[in-house]
Amino acid sequence: MVQPARKLNGSRLVRFAWLPLCLVLAACHVDMYDQPRYQPNQVSTFFRDGRAMRPPVENTVAIGSFDPDSALLTGKVNGELASELPVELTAELLEHGRTRYDAYCAPCHGIAGDGNGVIAYRGPLQVPSLHQDRLRTVAIGYFFEVITNGVNRMYSYANRIPPEDRWAVAAYVRALQLSQYADVNDLSAEERQQLGVK
């Protein structure tokens, strides 16, 4: 056999087409998967307390999150508990308040507000009923105040329920109270008939 002249022609080059595949090996690392940035709740070795999420400096508030004159944010008007909602009372507000109440309050206060939630039962914890004269006639800002700052053994829920939602809960609590203490004269004729009133 006669050896052909060693020339770098096209077909010879094709034999080395696999070489770029070696570049694939260079992609075997995870720094796109774990990029050098922090995720929420990640552990940090940079900060002394080990938290990547930085808690705000004590006694600071974010811009727009506090206004001492705003009833919406403080629950108070001129230092007194607000007796009216600082937001409009609508069916949507009550419905929204219902979802908040069922998620955050019902474990202890009970779905019906009688203080017999599943947690209260299992604790067992003494949880006051929402259906008492004092709470029926208290200014509605009181519920806002309690959710914001807690009361007795109840912790503050301010970091879980934003101010607008707290008012929704307060309004829903009033609906709950009304549902357990309604005047029969406010009901329609059919409803009264159903209850057996002449």
């Binding site: 007796s83 006639t137 609906a175 109270q177 203490y181 005047d183 209850l195």
Partner: peptide
Amino acid sequence: QGIVHIPIERSMELLLEQGVNPFGQ
């Protein structure tokens, strides 16, 4: 005393009519 308990849906309707202080201050 003429006091009843009613379904929450109905109560929400009533509250919309009567405002947030149905029992007075």
